[in-house]
Amino acid sequence: MLDKQLILGVYDDGDKLLSSVKKLKKKGVEIFDCYTPYPVHHLDNEMGIKRSNLTVGAFICGMVGFCSGLLLQFYMMTNLLHTFKSWPMIIGGKPQDYGMWPSMVPVTFELTILFTAFGIGFLFFAKSEMIHGKIAQLVDPRQTDDRLFLAVEPTELSKISRSELDTLLNDNGAIEIRERNMDGSDAEAVVHAEPAVEEAPVVEASSQDEADLSEDQKTEKLSLLKSIVGEVAADDKDDLKKISGVGPVYEEKLNSIGIYTFEQVSKLTPETIKAIESLTKYFPGKIEREDWISQAKNLMDK
């Protein structure tokens, strides 16, 4: 996990992220970084990232390849570098000096390309500090999946007040706004906001909710859940991952609290959703936002 204190705007669409970045830059706020599962075009320009000079590196590598190709062949095929110790290469009376250059074209060409490609490859890995086995510096496990993150350092709050920042991000379609602590854990008080459509953003997640539930509370919530959605044997389970928004991790969590089928999901009520959220401690508001209930109903019909 990335070891950094950050304010994160969470998005589900590149265009929304891009427009937030534009607005923030207009206010003079520096963006620490954005994390996206796919390349968002023009994001680099808008963030003010300087064009990388990898192309220069590629050109130099290509030139090295070109020269080594020529050198290799002159060294082996001719005596221009006084390299014939014992075996001159006499092949069908073909020239043994500069005159053999046409034969050198293919290999020189291939080596130029080989050096360019691997040169730029390794330069890229070096500049991006990527190496096999490196632990990824993530802000959230979904940043490579279906969420886009805009990260701002808290020091930038000198240029924009916190509430202004929140409104700006929300107005441009942020799903939620989070803070991360130095140790990489999410801050306790999650400032959570719905997109403008529904009720006004309310700071709802109290620290109690986030804290571990007592055993009593747990059993109480589980029994509430069971009374509404019913109990199903684990053998009859549906592939809950078919619900857009449910991944393997979340599916396991749902299974662990006794939800296995689409039918159960379709029966969820606002109360039970709250219970699930506090039991699984995972993205509050997600179930309603992605409308799992009607998704599940559709999947049942199939």
Binding site: L2, D33, C34, Y35, T36, P37, V40, L43, D44, M47, I49, F125, S128, E129, M130, I131, H132, G133, K134, I135, A136, Q137, L138, Q143, T144
Partner: peptide, 8 residues
């Protein structure tokens, strides 16, 4: 290789 989808 530690990929994190950073804009840079």
């Amino acid at each position: 290789m530690g990929w994190n989808g950073s804009a840079r």
